[in-house]
Every structure is written in structure tokens, then in C-alpha cells.
Amino acid sequence: MGIRFRNVSHEYSSYTKKTYKAIQDINLSIEGTNEFIALVGHTGSGKSTLAKHMNALMFPTDGSVEIFGSEVTKKRNKKIKYNDLRRQVGLVFQFPEYQLFEETVEKDIMFGPLNFKVDSEKAKTLAREALSLVGLDDSYLNRNPFNLSGGEKKRVSIAGILAIDPKVLVLDEPTSGLDPYGRQVLMNLFSDIHKKTNKSIIIITHDMDLVYRYFKRVIVLKDGELTFDGTPDKLFQSDIIEQNHLDLPNTVKALKQLNEKLNLNLDVYQKTPEAAAKEVRRVMKHE
């Protein structure tokens, strides 16, 4: 079980322009549990398009996506309850403005569970739990979602999906637009959720520091094609980085500079500033 892409392509068509393949011939397998995946690639590489295929918001124009046993193809299949697939795979969009609409945060978070026929008492509890999961306390429950700061809105929108309790969680750039501290907090949160519940989590991001530090697996897209699927260690040690217009994590970049400028022999592949400092100390001691 889980999500399986088989030769999936998606072609956007529009009236005037020629058709344009946003993703091409993707083969990919994502387990239903225990995955912590970063989806990276340059702007316009097809990440969001790929993500929308994971909960059947989009149908492939070619190939098929198997989502927890249901085969999603080009044609709408009457036997498949697409709504149910969205309960299994929750997708959080980049901009919270696209989903917040209720008068209170509590009601807004309850919208998802209620749509999936959870009774309203249970939905209330779920809303409260989801809100505390994203690090907001109960005082937010009765606030108007439109009066929140950007970061708070983002958290509420994430809580809105968490309350549905999907098996797999897909987040489209959840950390963009947040301050550095908020980014850390949110990443720690996803990491915690993953560790506690073993849910598979897929996160689209441009932040290589986060990718290196937190994730078990990285998928790289370039111009709609899947060019890498493996561990962050393998990614950053290979030359795939430059070919795909990606950046190295800051720690690696800094250590590489040190090696060059000071002629040191540091092991540059350190995930955190602390680890980097330790490595520098180790080498300095030797000298």
C-alpha cells in the first residue's frame, strides 16, 4: 500500500498555448508509513503538479497513480470514491488564503473532519488536538483566522489537514514565508509527528539546510523529470546538485570554503552548525 506512480505524465492544455508537459514519465513508490521525503527542484520543475497527483486532485494525462489500492488514471472511475482518497492522503497548499473561510479557527479546522462525516463533538476534539500539534494554544480557537499573522495562518491551515488524520501528509512549501525560528519549529513539528505516528510525510521545499538535516529521502525533479531518488547524503555528495540547479546546504558550503581558503582537510558533510564546529575543532586539534 501507499502511493505508486507508474509512468505518470501530466500535460497542461490551454486554449492558445501549445500543450506543456509539467511532469513526464514519473515512476515513484512511496510507502504508506515511515517515509520522510523532501521533494525538491527548481521553480517550475513540476513539484506542485506531482503533489496534486498524490491525492487525486489531478488525474494523470498518461500512466497511472495507485493510491492506497485505488488506481487513478486519466478517466474518472465511478467505482473510486476520490473523496476517500483525500482522507488517506492530506495535501496542504502553499498559501493558507486559499482555504481559510470560517469565522473562528476552531470551525475552520473542523471543516475537514465534518466533511468526512465525523460527528461534531469528535471534530471539536480533533480540532483542539490538531491546533496544539502545530504549536498554537487553545486561546486561538475562538479567534478569527483572518486576523492572524501569516505564520499563524499557515499553522492553522496545516492543522486543518492534520485534523483529518490522513495516513500520508503532503505539504507544499510549508516553511516558505516563515521566520527562521518558525521554520525550525515547524520542521521539528513535522519530524515529531513523523516519529510519534510513523505517518509518511512528503514536504516540498527549497531549503537545502532543512533537506540535509531532517529528511530520510529526497526526490529531485528537473523540468518535469525525476532525476534523483535517494538519501540526502548521497544527493549532496554527488554532482547531481549542480546539474539540477540546486544549492548545497550552508554547513557544507562553509566547510568547503574553509578547506579551500585555509587548506584544511575537513569532512565537509556535516548536517548542523554544531557538528560542523565539532569537525573544525577535531581537525584543528590534529594540526
Binding site: 482522507r87 482555504q99 489537514i161
Partner: peptide, 13 residues
């Protein structure tokens, strides 16, 4: 369309 997609992800069919 984006809003509909976002709400469909929350089970609005």
C-alpha cells in the same frame, strides 16, 4: 480552481 483544490483536499466534494 486553486481554492476548490484546497477545499477538496479537506473533503469538500
Amino acid at each position: 480552481q486553486k481554492i476548490m483544490a484546497a477545499q477538496a483536499s479537506r473533503g469538500a466534494d
